[in-house]
């Protein structure tokens, strides 16, 4: 009787053990193809915390190593975004309303001057948004139209879930939308975001270059 019971326990343990491993603290997902990214708001330790999650598939481990020091993936914590959770932040409002129209992809991000993307993310001096952001109170959550506009920001390197990175000032207010991170099977690419120039149909020569970001 006891031996049968012990055997049953062993069998159960061997079935459950992997599951136990899987329900550890770090959320584990299947290794992706390429790189995957998402904004994570889940509750950890009983408290909702915001972070950026990256997972790197076969052949892209260096990207994750660079970003987070782990070749599999990581979680980059993000602190609060001042006055963002409501209708107060005009800069966020502008972005959600005009992403894809006034705010467009302006080419690959260059990191020669200033800190690299990894450095910025690790420093925590940024806020991030996506089409699923709870900071968005102006358009419906992840509405197809909004999603399409966000995805248009990643036109050269199409991504399911683009993430836009904002600079923050010393008050942790978002100041400028700087980069959009586009992740797919081909890896992660960061593009600059610029504010759109207008077209003047009368062929008038523009007197000055359009402003890059508001």
């Amino acid at each position: 009787m006891t031996t049968r019971f012990a055997a049953l326990c062993l069998i159960l343990a061997s079935i459950l053990a992997p599951a136990a491993r899987a329900t550890g603290d770090a959320p584990v997902r299947a290794r992706p193809i390429g790189i995957s990214q998402y904004e994570d708001w889940s509750s950890r330790g009983g408290v909702y915390r915001k972070s950026l999650e990256f997972r790197c598939g076969q052949g892209f481990e260096s990207a994750c190593l660079d970003l987070c020091g782990d070749d599999f993936g990581c979680s980059i914590p993000e602190s609060y975004c001042r006055d963002c959770a409501g209708a107060a932040e005009l800069r966020l409002m502008n972005f959600f309303k005009f992403a894809g129209t006034y705010f467009v992809n302006a080419g690959r991000a260059r990191f020669e001057e200033g800190p690299s993307l990894a450095a910025v993310l690790r420093s925590g001096n940024f806020v991030s948004i996506s089409s699923r952001s709870p900071y968005n109170v102006w358009t419906p959550f992840d509405a197809p139209e909004l999603r399409a506009r966000f995805q248009s920001l990643c036109a050269p390197h199409p991504s399911e879930d683009p993430i836009v990175i904002f600079d923050v000032n010393e008050r942790r207010q978002p100041t400028h939308a700087r980069w959009v991170l586009c992740a797919n099977e081909g890896g992660l690419v960061a593009f600059e975001i610029a504010r759109r120039a207008v077209l003047v149909p009368e062929n008038r020569v523009l007197r000055s270059a359009p402003r890059s970001v508001p």
Binding site: W41, V47, Y48, R49, R82, A85
Partner: peptide
Amino acid sequence: LRLPNAGEFSEVFRSLPLEEA
């Protein structure tokens, strides 16, 4: 410290514009 009595929202509530509410 964490925002008192805010439960699971004690970190994320800091993003709310308190002065508006």
